[in-house]
Amino acid sequence: MAFTAKDVQALREMTGVGMMDCKKALTASDGDMDKAVEFLREKGLAASQKKAGRIAAEGMAYAAVIDGVGVAVEVNAETDFVGKNEKFVDFVKGVANVVAKENPSDLDDLLAKPYGNGRTVLEEQQEMVLVIGENIKVRRFARCTEGVHVPYVHAGGKIGVLVNMEVSAGLENNAEVLNAGKDAAMQIAALNPRFLDKSQVDQATLDEEKKIMLVQMENDPKMASKPEKVKEGIVNGKLGKFYKENCLLQQEFVKDNSVNVEQYVTSVAKAAGGTAVIKSFVRFEKGEGIEKKQENFAEEIAKQLGK
């Protein structure tokens, strides 16, 4: 019995197995869908379907410059142990290479791109699930082609940072300027600024901060009786502190708190005979925003023992 591309897609959706393996299964089963599913189960391939629903909040965040393209990716796994697995790390780096080479438009497009070994990224991801035995998911990526890129990976993949800089001619490979970019990347990893520059703070965020500050003053007996104009002045003064805490360029440089990050980068470039400006940054922290499953180890053991 013949089969179509739609049959291959249907089998893929049913089992979570890669396209090529689904084709093999349908060929071996003469197009019979039930037999094809049984074929995949016998081969141990359909097991990836069960793993696909499990929470993956560990893994690795990674940043690199590949053929002049700045790339940051996050790939998740279920346990921290897998994040150190050599095959998993190679897969993460392979995904970064695909991002650099193929310029995907979004995550779905990335998963459909060729991984470089005859499989797509999605099929290679499913292969990793089968080989490693955990749910593995490519979660997000960033790609930058303009300017100079400085990557930094913290704690073996807990945080990946990519800093993009605009530098004057001749400073593209200057060691001191690149080191300044790395210093900024390390500060981003440590302090997690919400914005690049104070000019990027949206009005809704400012309004919320002002509201919180005014409520705090209302709850302070010493401040509550002050005129509204005085309170507004105090609030505007406190916003300066907000910028210093939340905006990278206005943050005090951690290695020298007499200057902020913007001043530090500017001074390094000036000493090198040119200019440098941080234009953007990406910070991926593995598992950020993913609700982790809370396990009760004693209860789990009791269940296994049938108690």
Rank of each mutant, 00 (worst) to 15 (best):
V131H: 03
G133K: 07
N76M: 07
G68L: 11
A77D: 03
R143S: 11
N135H: 02
V73Y: 06
I136Q: 04
E127I: 06
A61M: 12
G133H: 04
K84T: 07
R54T: 10
A112W: 03
F91H: 06
E102H: 13
E124L: 11
A64W: 03
V98N: 15
K50L: 11
F91Y: 12
K50S: 14
E146C: 00
E42K: 15
A142K: 12
A46G: 08
L110R: 06
Q126C: 01
G70D: 12
L122R: 06
T120P: 07
V71E: 10
D67L: 02
L45H: 12
R54H: 05
V92M: 06
G53M: 01
E134R: 07
E74Y: 04
D106K: 00
P114K: 07
V129C: 01
A61Q: 05
Q125R: 07
E74A: 13
L107Y: 09
N117Y: 01
V98G: 15
K101F: 11
E146S: 09
D90H: 01
G133T: 02
A96N: 14
N103Y: 00
R54Q: 11
A52V: 03
N103G: 02
D108Q: 12
M60C: 14
K50R: 11
Q49M: 14
P104C: 14
A96T: 13
D67T: 07
M60Q: 10
G83V: 05
N85F: 08
Q126W: 00
L111Y: 05
E86V: 09
I136E: 07
